[in-house]
Simulated scan of single mutants.
Amino acid sequence: MSTELRSHLDAFIAAADDGSFSAAARRLGLTPAAVSKSVAQFEARLGVRLFQRSTRRLALTTDGERLYGQVRLPWAEIGDALTDLRQGAGKPAGT
């Protein structure tokens, strides 16, 4: 999986979790504009709208809800597995 696709998924999931690009940006250490741009690029790549945007609200579309439901848990588990791997790297193991 490309780094670009990973960053798009991170931005999409964080925005869906938090309900805003600003909150997602704080969590990811990015600017709100960078998160918004990443999500827009992801939508363009997929050819579907994932969020309904207004000046006051960010809400998942039906397609966005479906994708979020399918990727949220596996994506978190992959992140946890990679974190565990990194934390154990270089530590002695065995007898």
Rank of each mutant, 00 (worst) to 15 (best):
residue 41 Q to R: 13
residue 51 F to A: 11
residue 44 A to L: 05
residue 60 L to N: 01
residue 50 L to T: 07
residue 4 E to M: 10
residue 64 G to L: 07
residue 11 A to T: 10
residue 24 A to C: 01
residue 1 M to P: 01
residue 32 P to Q: 13
residue 90 G to W: 01
residue 71 V to D: 07
residue 79 G to N: 13
residue 86 R to M: 12
residue 53 R to I: 08
residue 33 A to L: 08
residue 17 D to H: 09
residue 14 A to W: 00
residue 23 A to C: 07
residue 63 D to I: 10
residue 22 S to Y: 06
residue 79 G to Y: 10
residue 75 W to L: 14
residue 39 V to D: 05
residue 60 L to T: 05
residue 58 L to I: 12
residue 27 R to H: 14
residue 26 R to W: 05
residue 15 A to T: 14
residue 28 L to W: 07
residue 2 S to Q: 06
residue 61 T to W: 08
residue 70 Q to A: 15
residue 40 A to D: 05
residue 50 L to F: 13
residue 66 R to F: 11
residue 11 A to Q: 09
residue 64 G to N: 03
residue 90 G to V: 12
residue 60 L to P: 00
residue 44 A to W: 00
residue 75 W to H: 10
residue 74 P to N: 08
residue 92 P to V: 14
residue 38 S to D: 05
residue 43 E to A: 15
residue 11 A to V: 10
residue 2 S to H: 04
residue 82 L to M: 12
residue 32 P to I: 11
residue 72 R to I: 03
residue 28 L to S: 13
residue 10 D to H: 09
residue 19 G to A: 14
residue 60 L to Y: 01
residue 58 L to R: 03
residue 83 T to G: 13
residue 80 D to K: 09
residue 9 L to T: 04
residue 50 L to V: 13
residue 52 Q to C: 08
residue 25 A to T: 09
residue 24 A to T: 06
residue 44 A to K: 04
residue 20 S to Q: 00
residue 36 S to I: 08
residue 55 T to R: 04
residue 37 K to N: 08
residue 13 I to W: 04
residue 25 A to H: 08
residue 52 Q to G: 00
residue 56 R to M: 06
residue 4 E to D: 13
residue 88 G to M: 01
residue 86 R to F: 11
residue 43 E to R: 06
residue 8 H to T: 00
residue 57 R to D: 15
residue 78 I to H: 02
residue 4 E to F: 04
residue 13 I to P: 01
residue 37 K to P: 00
residue 46 L to E: 08
residue 47 G to Q: 04
residue 72 R to T: 03
residue 29 G to R: 04
residue 40 A to K: 04
residue 80 D to G: 00
residue 68 Y to G: 09
residue 69 G to E: 09
residue 94 G to N: 06
residue 78 I to M: 03
residue 81 A to E: 12
residue 80 D to S: 11
residue 55 T to M: 03
residue 45 R to L: 14
residue 4 E to C: 08
residue 64 G to H: 03
residue 12 F to Q: 00
residue 89 A to M: 10
